[in-house]
Structure formats: structure tokens, C-alpha cells
Design a binder for these strands. Structure first.
Lengths: 141, 141, 141, 141
DNA sequence: GTGGTCTAGACCACT
DNA sequence: GTGGTCTAGACCACG
């Protein structure tokens, strides 16, 4: 399963859920049209308050990651159906990168070392994703 | 000035201060030995309670970013005085990079586009920093 | 109860709380998973401000002695959950021992007498702890 | 010299001085009758406020470690001249040992390991002291 | 109901 | 005058 919730973490549980769903989507584990568990199913399985799960789903819907079809369930949105590109969010990425640079400095890592680390991480991410997709294809052949 | 505080942001004021100081240090705007405003000066200037500022300073001291000289004020610490390297924090950087990849995907940005953006951001950061240092040197000549 | 607070002591109240909790844990009076009083309960019982208690709890959490489960309360953490070993802290123990030797000298106690006293104290501590554990076990049988 | 003062340490400077003097005495580096620098000499040499040094001397006098002979200077007290043995102070040693046990527990050191560490530390202390005394004697022969 | 944050204002220890 | 601590009382985020 793509979800691990740690109730002891300082980051709110509902945000952990949001993040996990977005991660699964980004990795290609969840794909457009896939159905998510209902709020109550997920709440029961992970022993979470259902209000918490509901809040996570609301947030995901707000971000257009999922869509709720009335009385049919919630599904991963079709990415292409959302043509809106939001400069505000790109801004957010810039801030994240800046934070990365700041934190790196305080761990005595130079910008170029960070760049190195970043490139490696991205390459790993990409190859892992491709491996996953190849594996998926083979299974379906 | 290197500090902007937004009291209505969801991120706690004391953390905003912490982040701002770390940013100024990473950028080279604040240097080892520089004196920070006193708790009460800073509190007055930004209309913050002095306790909030004190809490930020304590957090910064805990992270070895600043040092308190008893009743003389607080100063940016020498980076060299901290031989401790914390693998746990490097781990944190990895997580940040992963988050970056995930968020990028949800703004329809591919890993390679993100890489591009990252490299540009780092280069900008570095050249800005060098420009600042050159300017500083020239002023002191 | 395992807590005695003296508001007129020169040592800060929040540190007294921190120390008392650590002592209770070391003695086995508080065990992994045990729930601590809520911030406000403890504050009310000892006529302390809740902020002071909160600060003590935060410090304890930072030292991995307790863990906060969001809006469920705070609990003694599993010792096993903390694989981190800090040489810096062992250093601190050495300093404490040196202080002990120095203070002993000024009470006209020779190192060997101190050694005697130390061994006795440790043995008492251990037997007391074992007695407490045996008693605990018997009660649960 | 037997004094090192760290103005950045969280422990007050005057206490650092007190501790250093007591340490030098316990180690036999300073002996009964030895003359200490005057308040102003010491203040000048270590760039400390003379009030701070004065306070340290007061504290040392209060603890009978030194004695001030009016207009002749301050001297290390003759230990044997102070026949008073204070149970209150022995109590203090007990508390220190208890703290040691508590802190050891939170660094995952068992009481017996601590005992081991303690014995080693005491033996080192004693042999060092004897070596110093032998060296002293040889020099004076 | 839980802890977390903030303000306001007071007092203290240290230099 | 510096930071550190504490109280009192308020509001918020989370589950």
C-alpha cells in the first residue's frame, strides 16, 4: 500500500495523507481514474478519525488531485483535464528550492554539493519510475 | 533589513524569525560575529512580543546559528566552531528534494524541467552571493 | 506523585519538571507508553502556569524522553525508538564526575571515600529499582 | 594557568571562576597559603568585569576555599583550619550522584556501566595527582 | 479536549 | 541594559 501514517509525527495526519496521495500519483502508482478507498474505509484501515481523512480528501480535491463523483466514489483526476497552470504554485517551488539552499548551508553543504545531490536524486527518481512502468506493462502483456 | 514578519501567516512568528535569520546567514548578509538586534529592539521594531523573539533566538542558539554573550547581546556564531555533522539533517534535505519532485509533478513540471529550474536557481543564488561579497569588499577598500 | 516543584528555587520551574520526569523514568516509576498529565492538569495541580508546563514538555520531547500524540496527550517514549547515541552527552557525564571529585575534596572527602559513597549509592539505586519492579510484577499477577 | 573562562558558556562567568579555583585546589595545583591574583589583576588578564571577579571571590570566601587578609591579598585557606563538616554538603554530593544516574539512564548507560566509568575516572584523577606531586617534589629537591 | 502560539506585563540574574 | 523566566489570559489547529 502507498500510505503510511505516523500519528507521532509533528506533521498533521491529514497532511500526511495528502502528501502520500500526491506522492503515489507522482510516482505513477496511482493513475488517472483509479478509485480511492472511501473515507470510512481508509479511516477504519489506518485507525484514523474519519474527519481527518475527510479533511485530507477535501484538500486533495481543492488541489485538483482527486475528484469526487457523487455517490460513485473518489477518483484520481485526469491530469490533462486541468489545463490551468498556476504561477503561484511555481512560485512555491522556487521557495522550496530557496529553503533547500538555506538548510544546506547550515549543514555545511555548498550549493554545488547540493546541486550534485539534487541531480542524483532526480535521476534515481526517474529511473525508478521507468522501472515501475516497464514492470507494469510486462505484467499486462 | 533582512526580516519580514507576517503575523497572519499560518507559520508561527518565531519560526519566521528563525528562518529569516538562517536565510540572511546563508546569503552572507549576516556574518560570523555580527550582532543581532536585542530581543527587545527587534520586538519593538516589528511590533512583536519580546517573548516571541526570545523564543526564536533560543531556537537559533539550539541550532548553533547564533551565540549569546551574557548581557552583551547575541551574535552570529562562527561556522567553524561547530564540528558536528548531523546525518539526520542531510536526510531531511533528501526529503525536501523528494517533496520538490512531487509538487513539481502536480504543477505539470517534468523532473528534467525541475532540474533545469533548480540549476538556474542555484546559479542565481551563487552569483548574487558573489556580487554581494564583491560589493562588500569594494566598500571596505 | 513523582513531582515536587519549588517555585522559590533558583533552578527554573520548567527545568525542575524536566528533571523530575527524567528521574521518574530512570527509576522505572514512569514507563514507556505511560501517559503524563495534560499540560493544564499538571499546571492546575501544582499551581503553575500552563505555559511553563508546556515548555517543560517541549524540552522533554526534544530530548526524546516523551512523545506527543496529537490531541491525545503526551506519553513516555519507547527507549528503543531512539537509536541515536550522542558522544557529546557522554562527555557531559565525565564532567559531572569531575565536578563530583572537586566538590568531594572541599568537603574533606578523599577520592576513595567518594568511590565508596558512589558504589553504595548506585547499589541502593539498583536494589530499590528492582524492589519496585518486583512489587509491580506481584501486583499484576 | 589554571583558569579558562568561556564567556559564551551558559554557565555564569563568576561560577566558572569559582569552579576553576576549586578544581585547582582539589588537584593540588593551588595549595594552602598560595596567593591569588587581586581582583583587578585577574579581571584585567581575562578581560572580565572586576565586579564579576569580586563576586567569585566572595563566593569562594563564603565556602571557605579562600581567605582575604585585609590589604595583604587573598589566599587559599588552610584546609585543616576548617574543622566543620557540613552534612548539607554531603547531601549535595548525593544529589549529584543521583543526577549522574538519571542522566546516564537517558544516554542508555546502565548503572554498572556508569560505575565502571566512575571508577576509571577516579583512578585517573588520583594517578594524575600523584604524578603532579612527585614532579613537584623532584623540582624542589 | 489536546497541545501550540501569542501578547502583556512583571521580576530576576548576570555583566 | 542584556537575556531568561514566569504568570495571566486569549486564540488557534488538530483529531
Amino acid at each position: 500500500m502507498w500510505l503510511h501514517v505516523n500519528p507521532r509525527s509533528p506533521v498533521p495526519v491529514y497532511q500526511q495523507i495528502v502528501h502520500a496521495v500526491k506522492e503515489a500519483v507522482a510516482k505513477g502508482i496511482l493513475k488517472a481514474g483509479d478509485r480511492l478507498p472511501t473515507v470510512r474505509e481508509l479511516a477504519a484501515e489506518y485507525v484514523i478519525n474519519h474527519n481527518t481523512v475527510a479533511r485530507a480528501y477535501q484538500e486533495l480535491e481543492r488541489e485538483n488531485v482527486i475528484q469526487t463523483l457523487r455517490s460513485k466514489g473518489t477518483f484520481i483526476s485526469d491530469a490533462e483535464s486541468l489545463p490551468i497552470i498556476i504561477p503561484e504554485k511555481v512560485e512555491h517551488l522556487h521557495d522550496l528550492i530557496k529553503t533547500l539552499l538555506i538548510e544546506a548551508h547550515h549543514v555545511r553543504m555548498s550549493p554545488s554539493e547540493l546541486k550534485q545531490m539534487f541531480v542524483t536524486a532526480v535521476d534515481d527518481w526517474t529511473t525508478e519510475k521507468e522501472a515501475r512502468e516497464r514492470h507494469e506493462r510486462d505484467r499486462n502483456v
